[in-house]
Computed example of a mutant assay.
Amino acid sequence: MEETWDNSIASKTCYIYDYFHDDFFADEHGITRSLAEGMTYENTNKTKIDAKFIVKSYQSMDKDQVEYYLMFRPSQPVRFNEGDDLYYYETDFRKRYGATFPIGLFVDVPDDRGIYHKWIVCRDEPANQFPKYLILPVNYELTWIEKSNDKRIKRRMWCCLRQQNSYTIGTYTDRYFTHTDNQSKVWLPMNSITEKFWYTDDDAKNMRVIVSALTEHPTVWTVTKCETASTLGLQKLTLYTNFFNEHTDYVNLETGEMYANYFDSEIAPTDPSTPTTPPSSITARISASTSTIKVGGSYKNLTANLFNDSNEDITTEYADATFTWTCSIDDEDWTDKVTWRAGTEYNQKKVKFPNDTSVIGKILSIKCEIVKDYLPIKSEILPLELIE
């Protein structure tokens, strides 16, 4: 096998690595990673490894994914000493989770055109001489909010989506009610990030994640089971149908970000590599032509300006920021009850109040949150009296 290795058409030069040794490819927003196209290895943290790509079957009638295997070169070591490129497996996977190399690692495998695709090693296939390893294609980047004491951190990681073997029509009816009934599974590598997934016997308190195409109302799921030992080195999540909540869940169609329970706390979620608070010296104020707004009247122009600690207007420095406008009456959210229109400038907005005379004389409180480089700045409240 060793002598004829290079002559085999199945032999490929692959790259193996864990989550922390992945090479990220960011777009102009700095958050989107490349899954397959464009991966190069001139300067990489990944480890080169020789393997044969084996297809066990080309179609399946009763499973959601046919099986693919990798077989490493016979001379490839599976245990590593200090100084080896893959020594981190001994401490991070074998010692901590009891895993066996290479379970839980990502591997980049080239196709017939030489384009590398990301896979995850899921199981070993024992053999007397030449053991093989089951691999599955990585097909989704899961995003979620991690709660750690008083911190809430935005997380994202490539994973493998799996379907349950039992298929349903999507609803279940007991003696009294009919409710949605759909299940799915997600397989991720086990590491210091994914080990924090959890669930309880109270569905209302379980973690929620979004697994969906990028839409305004994506499909949301509840984590109902975490399996960390069915295959040591993997975190297997079982998901159950939930509902999208426009008040707590966050979707950005431009950047592709989707987070369940994003607004579930007063503490804003942050990326682990970014500061948790904006510069305290920057303030934001909203201005309008008058301090009143007519019920059922025309649009009113609003302008948000930002100032530094010297009270100098620095709004032009936030031309690429995101301005999110909200309003309320007596602490009741009215953001979706009024009509908004874009202003002529990036820091301007137009608002029109509906013809609801029951609130005449009350105060409409307008706020704006400006986010740049993941740092939110909340404006001062602009009070507008509702008049006829």
Rank of each mutant, 00 (worst) to 15 (best):
W5M: 07
S8L: 02
T13M: 07
D23M: 11
D23W: 14
G30K: 01
I31T: 00
T32N: 00
R33I: 00
L35P: 04
E37G: 08
N43C: 05
K46S: 12
K63P: 01
Y68C: 07
F72H: 06
P74Q: 04
P74S: 08
E82M: 10
E90H: 14
T91S: 10
F93T: 08
R96Y: 00
A99Y: 03
A99Q: 02
A99L: 09
F101E: 07
I103M: 08
L105V: 08
V107R: 06
V109I: 15
D111S: 12
D112Q: 05
G114H: 05
C122L: 07
C122N: 13
E125H: 01
A127K: 05
P137I: 01
L142M: 09
W144P: 05
D150Y: 12
K151Q: 13
R155Q: 11
M157I: 02
C159R: 08
C160W: 12
G170N: 11
T173L: 15
Y176M: 09
N182D: 10
F197W: 01
Y199M: 04
T200I: 12
K205R: 12
I210P: 01
V211C: 11
S212H: 08
C226G: 04
L234F: 05
Y240M: 03
N242R: 10
E254S: 05
Y259N: 01
D264R: 00
I267S: 02
T270P: 03
S273A: 04
S273M: 04
I282P: 05
S289G: 13
I293H: 07
I293N: 07
K294W: 04
S298E: 10
Y299M: 06
L302K: 01
F307R: 02
S310E: 01
Y318M: 01
A319T: 08
F323R: 01
F323Q: 02
T339W: 13
G343V: 05
K352W: 14
P354K: 12
K367A: 12
C368A: 00
L375H: 13
E380L: 06
